[in-house]
């Protein structure tokens, strides 16, 4: 799929853990200010691919890549690039809500503080919580522990925490898989609002979710040698109604995975 002015690109990306290749030859353009879903069966390398976009794979000592990952046309894996700088611009929300054992306020203020934020931190925290649609629920308990919030609230807090560093991209790694259906709907609604200002890449197991929220969908699959690759990438409407590849069709109609 050809995209004009993509925000993120991968070119012939391969990811290895030690000597084992886990994702092969991924060439994708991620569209600016849209929601892109990465779907596929377990173990196909969805999360691994997502974690290449903010170099979280660097935390695994044996992980390495070949090929290119570009953000605004710049190579994220160039030797001169500091991964912490990347993560200010490309935020991440994880599978399980993982607030710090600190107050609601300190959770949101964490990123700006380590980032040397000079402006009005109270304002920034309030704004971030507003954007994450959590402000009304927590405005009276900013100083109580984040761990006292419900799972859905914790996940929105994690989104607010990611927004507070003012990233341009938000990566979401199955953000709703630990939440109940109502909390899931709240997060999906939030994603739609956020996509006006942010580019979002979401990994999900849930095909209905991908169909509901995403503009574009990439379908990944592992071949017989357990190496993941992109089978099909395109507009979500087309992927879910008129897939071009029979494996995509088999997956979205629930014949495997």
């Amino acid at each position: 799929m050809q995209v004009a002015d993509p925000i993120l690109q991968t070119k012939n990306l391969n990811v290895y853990y030690a000597d084992k290749r886990v994702v092969t030859d991924v060439t994708l353009d991620i569209v600016r200010n849209r929601i892109t879903a990465i779907i596929g069966p377990s173990g196909c390398g969805k999360s691994t691919l997502l974690r290449c976009f903010n170099r979280m794979n660097d935390l695994i000592p044996t992980a390495r890549i070949s090929g290119q990952v570009l953000f605004e046309g710049q190579d994220l894996y160039a030797p001169s690039v500091d991964p912490t700088e990347i993560r200010y611009q490309i935020g991440m929300v994880f599978q399980r809500p993982n607030p710090f054992p600190k107050s609601v306020f300190d959770n949101v203020a964490f990123g700006p503080r380590i980032n040397g934020f000079k402006g009005n931190i109270d304002e920034l925290v309030e704004q971030s919580l507003h954007r994450a649609a959590l402000w009304d629920e927590v405005k009276d308990r900013l100083n109580s522990s984040a761990l006292a919030l419900s799972g859905g609230q914790q996940q929105r807090l994690c989104i607010a925490r990611a927004l507070a560093v003012q990233p341009r991209v938000i990566l979401m790694d199955e953000p709703c898989s630990a939440l109940d259906p109502i909390a899931t709907l709240a997060i999906e609604e939030l994603m739609r609002e956020l996509s006006e200002e942010y580019s979002i890449v979401i990994v999900t197991h849930n095909m209905q979710q991908a169909a509901r929220v995403s503009h574009f969908t990439a379908f990944l699959m592992a071949d017989d040698t357990r190496i993941g690759h992109v089978v099909e990438y395109g507009e979500s409407r087309q992927i879910f109604t008129n897939p071009q590849d029979e494996r995509t069709e088999a997956y979205i109609t629930g014949r495997f995975g």
């Binding site: 994880f94 399980r96 607030p99 710090f100 964490f110 925490r161 990611a162």
Partner: peptide, 18 residues
Amino acid sequence: VPRSLREAAYALGSTKLE
């Protein structure tokens, strides 16, 4: 301390020391 907390901090641009 769960790995997920470290990941959360790294994902916000923390250095190892932070």
